Computed example of a mutant assay.
Amino acid sequence: MTAPLALSPLPAAARPLVGFASLLRANGFAVAPEQVVAFLAGVDLLGPRSIEDVRKAAVATIAPPRERRDTFDALFDAHFLGAAGEPEDADDWQADDDMKVEEEGVGQDILIGEEVHETGREATSAEALAVRQLRPPDDGDTLRRFTRALPEALPRRRGYRHRRARRGPGIDLAASLKAAIRNDGEVMALKRWRRSTRVRPILLLIDVSGSMKQRSDANLALAHALVHAAPRVEVFTFGTRLTRLTTALKRRNRSRALAIAADLVADWDGGTRIGDALQAFLAVPRFAGYARGAVVLILSDGLERGDPGAMIRSVQRLAARAHRIDWLSPLAADSGYRPETEGLAAIRPFITSLANGATTAAVCRHVLSLGRERAA
């Protein structure tokens, strides 16, 4: 009989990092297994050269709630630096049996804020981890027409390769000489070339917080259609944390793809921390590379409840990498809409357009209009 395979022991260098995640769970922080894996990868990516690199990796991947950042830092110092003292609210935290879920045999405490708004009409800073089942889209015909029209309407840019053309700025010497050989050395006409064009990548960022509750299902269905109609698309969701859904949405069956995506997103209908989510996105070089030269589509109402300064700085850095940023908000359905929140008003100079995102048809029309730009 074949002996069962033994699990490889955890490397000694990784034990303090995994122990920190356990310490956070014991003090009421919601830390998913994939966040622990991302934390380890982030530390490996940063070196680390100092303990502050470890702290940055922890903040970017675990994304502690803004209101509990002091507790997070105190636990970090106590665990890695041996700082004396306990976090201020450590004694006040009491785990409630109704607030625990079991995942792969390990209990995880889930922090549920009291500010969660069930109607989805207001933004909140509280983090609520939830499971959601996405409904099939009601506008399937709109998505089918969008999928057929998109390949020809995708925004493009000039590439570095050349292709033959009847008219062009350069002379294709090799093709001209080949044509001359067929005419006994007589050059009858000069062949021309021009630079080819390439489809620009698309980065889709979807707000799944409580204030966008009514649009979350439709926006995920639109993302699935976009992934299968365009060659280079990356999809992320954000609320109180950042989740990459590109791989899940690549499945051809829409119902299956949306079901997997719904399981991956843990912060449905919770708080809104746009700045923290964008900072986490830009902190990972591989993710930040997706924005280089891309058309960035942000489906959000912009009701930031975190630090507006973080949102402003993140959008400014994102705009420096991207070709353009289009912010599609349900509130912009009114032609007289003007951004009122501090964060959205401040980032207005960095975004190309603030357009209507109230319906799937409106979002599709806007995306199809992007291809009318001249390739630059």
Rank of each mutant, 00 (worst) to 15 (best):
M1P: 04
M1W: 00
P4Q: 02
P9L: 14
A12M: 12
P16C: 05
L17Q: 05
V31F: 06
Q35D: 12
V36W: 00
A57L: 05
A63P: 03
R66C: 00
T71L: 08
D73N: 07
D77N: 09
F80I: 04
E86R: 06
W93G: 06
D96H: 05
V101M: 08
G105P: 13
V106Y: 12
I110Q: 00
E118W: 12
E127F: 06
L129W: 15
P136V: 14
L143E: 06
T147E: 13
E152A: 09
G170P: 08
I171N: 01
L173E: 15
K178M: 13
A180N: 02
R192W: 09
S196I: 10
L204H: 03
L205Y: 13
G210R: 04
K213I: 07
Q214A: 15
A218W: 09
A229T: 01
R232V: 00
F236A: 01
G239R: 00
T240N: 11
T240S: 11
T240Y: 07
N253R: 03
L258A: 07
A266L: 07
D269S: 04
G271C: 06
I274D: 00
Y290G: 01
R292I: 14
I298Q: 01
I298L: 13
I298G: 00
S300H: 12
E304V: 10
R305I: 08
R317V: 11
A320S: 09
R321M: 15
A322T: 08
H323A: 09
A332L: 04
A332E: 09
A333M: 08
G336L: 13
P339N: 05
A346Q: 05
I347F: 02
F350G: 02
T360D: 07
A361D: 13
V363T: 04
R365A: 14
H366K: 06
R372I: 07
E373F: 07
R374H: 08
